[in-house]
């Protein structure tokens, strides 16, 4: 056991450094995808609530398809499909083909997947904001955009955070799927280290612990965020009125 733990050292012959570089790639993809997912989700949620029938149906197709198909297949379809489409467009416009970098592709593809789930989470949260809160703002003559940014979004944040916290954890774990398309993130780097050194348990458990630490820190962070977002909630007392 002692000998295999040495394999985790940061500098070669230890593989620790390789794992940390791969971890950094995983985190960048997760953060980027989550961010894109939030932007898509917010637009999608407002589209689903206030959009016209065509927009609503298109968003319905998007969220249903993404949630019914395995992420792995979506990643392959989007990865090949998007690069293909983009290169064809570039060729038509007279530019050279380009190769999309793994990180960018991963961010975009996982972001599109995250966006579908975020749409549903945020839609539910926006709908759960009491109508009176929005009415009071309208009655004071707030323009619609101000109502959204100053009243609806801050109020729904507390309702959306548990779902968003879950979604962020899914984002961190879904980065592992990029391993299957050959992108060198934490899980793939772990497998390479493990199969080279034959110390399977050491590396897989080490990687598992890293993911677990990310999960625990995120859970703690989101819980704090939620407590802040719900600062105006009624005090929870035993009994009640």
């Amino acid at each position: 056991m002692e000998s295999t733990l040495g394999l985790l050292a940061l500098s070669p012959p230890g593989w620790g450094g390789t794992l940390l570089v791969a971890l950094w790639a995983s985190i960048r993809i997760a953060v980027g995808a989550f961010g894109i997912g939030l932007v898509i989700g917010l637009a999608g949620a407002y589209g689903k609530i206030y959009g016209g029938p065509i927009l609503r149906d298109c968003l319905g197709v998007y969220t249903t398809m993404v949630r019914a198909l395995p992420e792995l297949i979506l990643i392959l379809l989007l990865y090949f499909g998007l690069t293909d489409l983009m290169n064809r467009a570039l060729l038509v416009m007279g530019y050279e083909r380009i190769q999309i970098s793994g990180v960018v592709a991963g961010i975009i593809v996982l972001g599109v997947v995250q966006g579908a789930y975020a749409t549903e989470i945020l839609r539910g949260a926006i709908l759960a904001v009491p109508a009176g809160q929005i009415e009071a703002a309208k009655a004071m003559g707030m323009p619609a955009r101000k109502v959204a940014s100053r009243i609806t979004l801050p109020t729904m944040l507390g309702l959306a955070l548990p779902g968003l916290s879950n979604l962020w954890l899914i984002a961190t774990k879904d980065t592992a799927l990029m391993a299957i398309v050959g992108f060198n993130e934490l899980t793939l780097a772990t497998r390479q280290a493990a199969s080279t050194t034959k110390a399977f348990f050491t590396f897989f458990i080490a990687a598992g612990l890293i993911y677990l630490v990310i999960t625990l820190i995120s859970t703690w962070g989101f819980a704090r965020l939620e407590r802040w977002a719900r600062r105006g909630d009624p005090p929870r007392q035993a009994g009640g009125r």
Partner: peptide, 23 residues
């Protein structure tokens, strides 16, 4: 439950297959 939910399934699959499979 925390460990299962906190780590990628792909990693769990590989841990069992390569790990146990090599043991």
């Amino acid at each position: 439950c925390t460990v299962i939910r906190g780590t990628p399934l792909l990693l769990q699959v590989w841990l069992l297959y390569y790990g146990l499979g090599s043991l």
